[in-house]
Design a protein around this nucleic acid. Sequence first.
DNA 1: GCCAACGTTGGC
DNA 2: GCCAACGTTGGC
Length: 156
Amino acid sequence: MARKFWLFKSEPDCYSIDDLKRHGTTHWDGVRNYQARNMLRDEIKPGDGVLFYHSSVQPPGIVGLAEVSRSGYPDHTALNPESEHFDPKATDENPIWYMVDVRFVSKLPKMLTLPDLKREPGLENMMVTQRGSRLSIQPVSSHEWKTIQRMISKLE
DNA sequence: GCCAACGTTGGC
DNA sequence: GCCAACGTTGGC
Protein backbone atom coordinates (compact mmCIF):
# COMPACT_ATOMS: atom_id res chain seq x y z
CA MET A 1 0.00 0.00 0.00
CA ALA A 2 1.20 3.47 -0.85
CA ARG A 3 2.59 5.69 1.83
CA LYS A 4 0.08 8.16 3.24
CA PHE A 5 0.49 11.50 4.91
CA TRP A 6 -0.98 13.10 8.01
CA LEU A 7 -0.92 16.20 10.14
CA PHE A 8 -0.80 15.69 13.91
CA LYS A 9 -1.67 18.61 16.15
CA SER A 10 -0.20 19.08 19.58
CA GLU A 11 -0.15 21.90 22.05
CA PRO A 12 3.57 22.43 22.71
CA ASP A 13 2.88 22.94 26.43
CA CYS A 14 1.55 19.41 26.39
CA TYR A 15 3.95 17.74 23.94
CA SER A 16 6.31 19.65 21.63
CA ILE A 17 8.59 18.80 18.72
CA ASP A 18 11.51 19.22 21.14
CA ASP A 19 9.98 16.58 23.39
CA LEU A 20 9.73 14.22 20.41
CA LYS A 21 13.30 15.03 19.36
CA ARG A 22 14.50 14.21 22.86
CA HIS A 23 12.46 10.99 23.16
CA GLY A 24 13.00 9.79 19.59
CA THR A 25 9.67 7.93 19.60
CA THR A 26 6.39 8.45 21.41
CA HIS A 27 2.88 7.00 21.80
CA TRP A 28 0.37 9.41 20.32
CA ASP A 29 -2.13 8.88 23.14
CA GLY A 30 -5.10 10.88 24.38
CA VAL A 31 -7.02 11.35 21.13
CA ARG A 32 -10.72 11.33 22.10
CA ASN A 33 -12.51 12.06 18.86
CA TYR A 34 -14.14 9.29 16.82
CA GLN A 35 -13.08 10.56 13.41
CA ALA A 36 -9.47 10.79 14.53
CA ARG A 37 -9.80 7.43 16.32
CA ASN A 38 -10.89 5.73 13.11
CA MET A 39 -7.83 7.03 11.30
CA LEU A 40 -5.52 5.94 14.12
CA ARG A 41 -7.10 2.49 14.25
CA ASP A 42 -7.59 1.76 10.56
CA GLU A 43 -5.61 3.97 8.24
CA ILE A 44 -2.36 5.21 9.72
CA LYS A 45 0.45 2.76 8.94
CA PRO A 46 4.17 2.40 9.63
CA GLY A 47 6.19 4.52 7.22
CA ASP A 48 3.47 7.13 6.77
CA GLY A 49 4.67 10.73 6.89
CA VAL A 50 3.58 13.10 9.66
CA LEU A 51 3.59 16.88 9.80
CA PHE A 52 4.04 17.88 13.44
CA TYR A 53 1.87 20.93 14.11
CA HIS A 54 1.88 23.18 17.16
CA SER A 55 -1.61 24.45 18.02
CA SER A 56 -2.88 27.01 20.52
CA VAL A 57 0.25 29.13 20.16
CA GLN A 58 0.72 32.39 18.31
CA PRO A 59 1.36 31.72 15.52
CA PRO A 60 0.40 28.07 15.13
CA GLY A 61 2.16 26.04 12.45
CA ILE A 62 4.21 23.07 11.29
CA VAL A 63 7.40 22.67 13.29
CA GLY A 64 8.75 19.30 12.25
CA LEU A 65 8.47 15.97 10.49
CA ALA A 66 7.86 12.54 11.96
CA GLU A 67 7.16 9.05 10.72
CA VAL A 68 4.67 6.48 11.92
CA SER A 69 6.55 3.58 13.52
CA ARG A 70 3.66 1.44 14.81
CA SER A 71 0.08 1.14 13.57
CA GLY A 72 -3.00 1.51 15.75
CA TYR A 73 -3.26 -0.30 19.09
CA PRO A 74 -5.40 0.34 22.17
CA ASP A 75 -4.73 3.58 24.04
CA HIS A 76 -4.16 2.26 27.55
CA THR A 77 -4.49 5.73 29.09
CA ALA A 78 -8.27 5.35 28.60
CA LEU A 79 -8.20 2.43 31.09
CA ASN A 80 -6.18 4.25 33.73
CA PRO A 81 -8.32 6.15 36.28
CA GLU A 82 -5.25 8.20 37.17
CA SER A 83 -4.91 9.48 33.61
CA GLU A 84 -6.44 12.75 32.51
CA HIS A 85 -7.51 10.83 29.40
CA PHE A 86 -9.37 8.17 31.40
CA ASP A 87 -12.65 7.00 29.85
CA PRO A 88 -14.88 4.92 32.15
CA LYS A 89 -16.55 3.33 29.11
CA ALA A 90 -13.31 1.79 27.85
CA THR A 91 -12.53 -1.85 28.72
CA ASP A 92 -9.91 -4.44 27.73
CA GLU A 93 -12.51 -6.08 25.45
CA ASN A 94 -13.58 -2.77 23.96
CA PRO A 95 -10.75 -0.27 24.31
CA ILE A 96 -12.67 2.36 22.26
CA TRP A 97 -9.59 4.58 21.85
CA TYR A 98 -6.47 3.88 19.84
CA MET A 99 -3.01 5.33 19.39
CA VAL A 100 -0.02 4.94 17.08
CA ASP A 101 3.69 5.43 17.68
CA VAL A 102 5.62 8.11 15.83
CA ARG A 103 9.36 8.57 15.39
CA PHE A 104 11.17 11.90 15.18
CA VAL A 105 12.50 12.74 11.72
CA SER A 106 13.44 16.42 11.80
CA LYS A 107 12.75 19.79 13.32
CA LEU A 108 12.31 22.58 10.79
CA PRO A 109 14.87 25.44 10.92
CA LYS A 110 11.84 27.62 11.50
CA MET A 111 8.09 27.17 11.75
CA LEU A 112 5.90 27.07 8.66
CA THR A 113 3.11 29.18 10.10
CA LEU A 114 -0.57 28.80 9.45
CA PRO A 115 -0.58 32.15 7.58
CA ASP A 116 2.30 30.79 5.42
CA LEU A 117 0.19 27.73 4.61
CA LYS A 118 -2.90 29.82 3.87
CA ARG A 119 -0.88 31.94 1.43
CA GLU A 120 0.65 29.00 -0.43
CA PRO A 121 -0.91 28.17 -3.81
CA GLY A 122 -1.96 24.54 -3.79
CA LEU A 123 -2.92 24.42 -0.12
CA GLU A 124 -6.31 26.15 -0.50
CA ASN A 125 -8.17 22.94 0.29
CA MET A 126 -5.84 21.61 2.96
CA MET A 127 -7.85 20.77 6.05
CA VAL A 128 -5.74 22.78 8.46
CA THR A 129 -6.16 25.96 6.40
CA GLN A 130 -9.96 25.73 6.59
CA ARG A 131 -11.70 27.78 9.22
CA GLY A 132 -13.12 25.85 12.13
CA SER A 133 -10.98 22.78 11.44
CA ARG A 134 -10.55 21.25 14.88
CA LEU A 135 -9.63 17.66 14.04
CA SER A 136 -6.34 16.81 15.79
CA ILE A 137 -5.36 14.12 13.27
CA GLN A 138 -5.84 15.20 9.67
CA PRO A 139 -5.20 13.49 6.34
CA VAL A 140 -2.78 15.30 4.01
CA SER A 141 -2.85 14.65 0.26
CA SER A 142 0.36 13.67 -1.51
CA HIS A 143 0.14 16.91 -3.46
CA GLU A 144 -0.10 18.91 -0.23
CA TRP A 145 2.80 16.91 1.20
CA LYS A 146 4.97 17.69 -1.84
CA THR A 147 4.05 21.36 -1.69
CA ILE A 148 5.04 21.50 1.96
CA GLN A 149 8.32 19.64 1.34
CA ARG A 150 9.11 22.27 -1.29
CA MET A 151 8.32 25.05 1.22
CA ILE A 152 10.57 23.36 3.79
CA SER A 153 13.46 23.13 1.32
CA LYS A 154 13.27 26.90 0.84
CA LEU A 155 13.39 27.73 4.55
CA GLU A 156 16.52 29.71 5.54
C1' DG B 1 -9.69 36.12 27.16
C1' DC B 2 -13.15 35.92 23.52
C1' DC B 3 -15.95 33.43 20.73
C1' DA B 4 -17.04 30.74 16.35
C1' DA B 5 -17.21 26.21 15.01
C1' DC B 6 -17.89 21.82 15.98
C1' DG B 7 -18.81 17.37 18.70
C1' DT B 8 -21.46 15.12 22.27
C1' DT B 9 -25.21 14.41 25.38
C1' DG B 10 -29.71 13.64 26.75
C1' DG B 11 -34.73 14.84 27.01
C1' DC B 12 -38.55 14.18 24.39
C1' DG C 1 -34.23 10.44 15.52
C1' DC C 2 -34.46 15.41 16.38
C1' DC C 3 -32.42 19.22 18.34
C1' DA C 4 -31.32 22.36 22.30
C1' DA C 5 -27.95 22.71 25.67
C1' DC C 6 -23.56 22.15 26.87
C1' DG C 7 -18.46 21.39 26.54
C1' DT C 8 -14.19 21.78 23.97
C1' DT C 9 -10.95 23.30 20.54
C1' DG C 10 -8.11 26.55 18.82
C1' DG C 11 -7.45 30.81 15.96
C1' DC C 12 -7.39 35.41 16.82
